[in-house]
Amino acid sequence: MTALGILYPGHSAEDDYPRMEQLLGSDIRLDLVHTDIGTDAHRVDALLEMGSADRLAAGVAELRMSGAESVVWACTSGSFVYGWEGAHEQVRSLARTAGMPASSTSFAFVHAVQELKARRVAVGATYPKDVAGLFADFLRAGGTDVISVCDAGIITAAEVGTWGEEEVFALAREADRPDAQALLLPDTALHTAAHIPALEKELGKPVLTANQVTVWEALRLADRRVNAPTLGALFTREPVVQV
């Protein structure tokens, strides 16, 4: 059994995680701990507070008790808003506090793009324009060529959490570009786990979503590969065979 720790801000699309746990198989357990978000707003000041070391540390003790082998801060905007160097310090602090390998959803996107060898990506963000731009800047700092950014201008995670299949597909279609090799949909408040194969079939390319890459990153930190096509192209790599 591989136990993976997820620090999830508030309550919006956390039901994506039990869905993904079921799709991954019986030997993967996702241990989800909710953190206090403070002010629910996609504003830089609120996001900096949401991702502060004190707020993350408050959830770590419970994860240590669960036997988790890695931990991921499951918040895209609450990590990239710190910038490239600040986000590195955020996960270093989390790793020290947790006593286990740590990362965040923002770094998960960077690593997932590298895994897929996608050089050019398009972004469909639920955020306001300025916050969406900070995500694009973060990806570029990680070596990704962001060719377009589409923003939905939504202020709160609570509103994003109400989106269903129709809204998710509309954002994906609007954001996609023919020359993009992958489409990225940030925001862990967005329900996407049930839609990834259909999105990839319609768009004809890999689709990376926040909750999906968060789980993939937690597996990567725990040195696990899982072949789960129902979670998209990112999960269709063959597992590493131990000899």
Results as ranks from 00 to 15, higher is better:
A218R: 05
L94N: 10
A222T: 05
G38S: 12
A46F: 00
E159M: 09
R43Q: 08
P229M: 15
D130A: 11
Y17Q: 00
L190W: 13
L184E: 09
L208S: 06
W73I: 06
A125G: 15
D137R: 15
P197T: 11
I147R: 07
T192A: 12
E49Q: 12
F107N: 12
I37P: 08
D45G: 07
F235S: 14
S93P: 05
P9Y: 02
E166N: 05
A58T: 08
P186T: 11
A218E: 08
D151T: 11
G67A: 14
M20K: 03
L4D: 09
N227M: 14
T35M: 09
T105R: 06
R96V: 00
P186L: 13
L7V: 00
I154M: 07
T209H: 03
G78C: 06
D145Q: 05
N211Q: 10
H191L: 13
I28A: 02
S104E: 01
V207C: 04
F109A: 01
Q242W: 15
H191T: 11
V146H: 03
V146K: 02
L7F: 04
G51C: 01
L116I: 07
Q114K: 15
L185M: 06
E202Q: 14
A180Y: 03
G10R: 07
L231G: 00
F135P: 09
L190K: 11
H11L: 02
V146S: 02
A198M: 13
T2I: 10
I155L: 14
D151Y: 08
P128R: 03
S77T: 10
E62C: 15
L185R: 06
G99S: 12
T236R: 12
P239F: 07
W73T: 09
G161R: 09
S26P: 02
A189I: 08
S93W: 02
L234Q: 01
R220I: 05
T209M: 05
S104K: 03
R120C: 07
Q22L: 11
D130L: 00
Q212Y: 06
A210Y: 13
I196A: 04
E200F: 03
H111F: 04
R173C: 01
L139F: 04
H111N: 07
T230R: 13
P178A: 10
G164C: 07
E167C: 09
I28S: 03
V72T: 11
S77F: 01
E62M: 12
A87Y: 15
